[in-house]
């Protein structure tokens, strides 16, 4: 029983990072209808930039969770302006292809700028195991829960109560009509890219602090993609929950089954969920009067 509890809690901790990545995917998809296949690479770039700042100015780990989102917002806005805005009005497929190209470019840029050797993230959250109800957790795992909860609350408040959140929801449903209502869809896309990069930067920093900073860090974002499919590609909060589910499923599969199966557990979850709910567990379905 203790083993099961350990697997679930540590799965939730890993899932919190997946959830943050999932929210990042969903934020862009919800506002623009585009899947950003460079999500992991964007997070990786921000982690490298954050690490560079921390190497110059040694600061405690928690400051990385403030610096990274700021760098993330700037990165998101720059990428939107340089890469995405020129594509406004083009079919989503063309923009998705651009994100794939962007992913390749960021990977190459990172190797050129920082080399291919992995290195340790300059700040650590601490190695002292904290016991919660008999289950041991590292501080970074607790921090991951806390950050995810904060991100969910912020996303909920933004989408539910703010004008910009409403504009994002409207743009996601029908961009042309949103335009006719006076919504500047280019601004909506820019905010979505900035928010997405900020959230993925948190996931990146949390992940890198438990592993390393290397040019294959982007794979964490790719691995989290099932989270947003399971939760619902157009549901920011659903994608966060999808991440938690994915983390637990992976851990239980690895704990009770073969470790190799753990790697494909997320994709098996995608197939299972999509067969029952094609829009994901929390994805919106079209409302139509029959």
């Amino acid at each position: 029983m203790q083993f099961l509890a350990d697997l679930i809690v540590s799965g939730l901790a890993a899932g919190a990072i997946y959830g943050l990545f999932g929210m990042a995917y969903a934020a862009i998809y919800k506002a623009t209808g585009v899947v950003n296949f460079a999500q992991g690479e964007v997070a990786m770039l921000i982690v490298y930039l954050t690490a560079a700042v921390l190497l110059r100015i040694p600061l405690p780990f928690w400051t990385a969770l403030l610096i990274a989102p700021l760098i993330g917002i700037a990165t998101g806005l720059v990428l939107d302006r340089l890469v995405i805005r020129p594509m406004v009005g083009r079919p989503p497929f063309a923009i998705v292809m651009v994100t794939i190209g962007l992913a390749v470019m960021i990977r190459a840029l990172i190797v050129l700028a920082w080399g291919s050797e992995p290195r340790e993230f300059p700040a650590r959250a601490g190695e002292t195991v904290v016991k919660l109800g008999g289950i041991g957790l590292y501080p970074v795992q607790i921090l991951a829960f806390f950050v995810l909860a904060l991100a969910i609350a912020a996303a909920w408040a933004l989408l539910r109560f703010s004008r910009m959140g409403l504009a994002m929801r409207a743009t996601a449903i029908d961009e042309r009509t949103a335009t006719l209502m006076g919504i500047d869809v280019r601004r909506v896309a820019a905010i979505a890219w900035a928010a997405s990069a900020a959230v993925s930067s948190l996931a990146g920093v949390l992940f890198a602090s438990t592993t390393y900073v290397g040019p294959d860090l982007f794979q964490a974002g790719l691995k989290a993609f099932p989270a947003t499919i399971v939760g619902g590609l157009d549901s920011v909060i659903g994608s966060a929950i999808g991440g938690l589910i994915l983390g637990v499923v992976e851990n239980l599969t690895g704990g009770y089954g073969d470790t190799a199966l753990k790697e494909i557990a997320g994709f098996v979850a995608i197939v299972a969920v999509l067969m029952i709910r094609p829009t994901g567990l929390f994805g919106a379905r079209d409302v139509e009067r029959l």
Binding site: R169, A170, D174, L180, I183
Partner: peptide, 22 residues
């Protein structure tokens, strides 16, 4: 617009709020 093009998943109140976005 032709065909009304309401934001079907949003509530009536939210549709009206979007009209007053600016």
């Amino acid at each position: 617009p032709e065909g009304r093009r309401l934001f079907a998943r949003l509530t009536v109140a939210e549709n009206l709020a979007i009209g007053g976005f600016l």
